[in-house]
Design a protein around this nucleic acid. Structure first.
Lengths: 225, 225
DNA sequence: CCAAAAGTGTTTATAATACACCCATGC
DNA sequence: GCATGGGTGTATTATAAACACTTTTGG
């Protein structure tokens, strides 16, 4: 082992759907480098910490989420020699999908963090723009073959809420009728409850919970606009 | 930046198809730890080197391949605190798909390396068994949605050769007639040449070259056994 | 001639799409 | 009643899969 040592960080692409728009949690940096600029939440890996544990810890610190059944996965590593002016830093990007949360409140590390609609995000510190881009791309791809979309929803949700998640992430319109049949007939996607939505215009909708499906399912439908 | 520094290595899952079997290039370790055991090719990242450059360099050293149009991509990073007895080492796994090559010859680093049929590979040094497993899984998944299978083939190949690649990687039998129509009708997959195979039993087959397709194509067919 | 592999055409099953239509609520 | 969204049924279309058949070589 030689002296070519790296600092190792984890950075998080934390996505949610708010007001029918895909949004990411970003922090405004309080210290150099890139002071005052927007960046992904993240930090250095502790001496005896595994990568996912480190990402889970950062996620909890930034969002207050204890990440019970939420989704967290490794994205990719970024280690361009000049990506950090302080020296050689390898960052392991992670992707988290969380339900719509109340705005991050003051206190702990979350003070400087806020949700930003992804369509309106400009340049970020370091190479975080690229990491964010890969996270969004991965999320879009995974919705097509997994039941992960439900992780964007609260514990109980309607089929229409779930559909709006797909529409927000993909930026397309889906046929509500075909969507309904598709998701309700995919084994393990949705667990029906006996409750219905009480308020709102139109006929009340049945409430569902996230099913246990982890793996793949036949492709989701993408209607033309 | 604190003293929690890591050594960073790249390890390579180098896959090929030899004699209709999926095979990986492995090295036998000449020094501790895990002296004498089989491991993935790899090594430490140099001070000013990017990850893919480092992987390309290791690939060239181990196989002699200059990696013109061959495939190389990052897989994932592995950093369990105890994965290397020498200390904290983060390894960035990479996946390379190469055509069937002559056996690695003595000289350079390739001396101790050899192809191993993946079905016959036992325990590997470090956590390389897991990295290999993820590489194989990724390769299997990507054949289904990309035209990557052709990177396992020599510069000119027949449809039957390409089919045997799918059959080797997936371990399934495919219908030669449906396969033919499928691959020849996928835009950008195959470039037809005017040449035919000269020898061999049966009717001569047309030779093709790798097409330019990079992205996705409709799912490949998987026939039942 | 026969066996073997290449390649084409046709039929059948399955899944995706489009869309007509009925249901249950708020106003 | 009427607008709004929830939910079901069905026709149409694309695609995958199964397989009969012709072509072209070597022996």
């Amino acid at each position: 082992m030689r002296g070519n040592l790296f600092a190792v960080a984890v950075d998080l692409v934390i996505l949610t759907v708010r007001a029918d728009r895909l949004a990411a949690l970003l922090v405004r940096r309080g210290i150099p480098p890139f002071q005052g600029e927007l960046a992904l939440p993240g930090g250095f890996v502790l001496p005896h910490e595994d990568l996912l544990d480190s990402a889970r810890r950062e996620l909890a610190e930034e969002t207050g989420l204890s990440l019970g059944d939420h989704h967290l996965e490794q994205l990719a590593s970024f280690a361009a020699p000049d990506r950090d002016p302080r020296g050689r830093v390898l960052s392991v990007g992670h992707l988290a999908l969380v339900p719509d949360l109340p705005d991050p409140e003051a206190g702990s590390d979350a003070a400087a963090s806020a949700w930003h609609e992804v369509a309106a995000i400009g340049a970020l510190a370091f190479d975080h723009g690229r990491i964010l881009g890969e996270g969004i791309e991965r999320a879009r791809a995974k919705l097509e073959y997994t039941t992960l979309a439900a992780t964007f929803c609260p514990p109980r949700f309607t089929v229409a809420q779930l559909r709006r998640v797909y529409e927000a992430v993909w930026g397309t319109a889906l046929d509500p009728r075909n969507f309904q049949r598709k998701v309700t007939s995919t084994p393990g996607f949705l667990i029906p409850t006996k409750e219905m939505t009480s308020s709102g215009r139109g006929r009340p909708a049945q409430l569902f919970e996230r099913g246990p499906a982890t793996g793949l399912h036949p492709p989701m439908l993408r209607d033309p606009a």
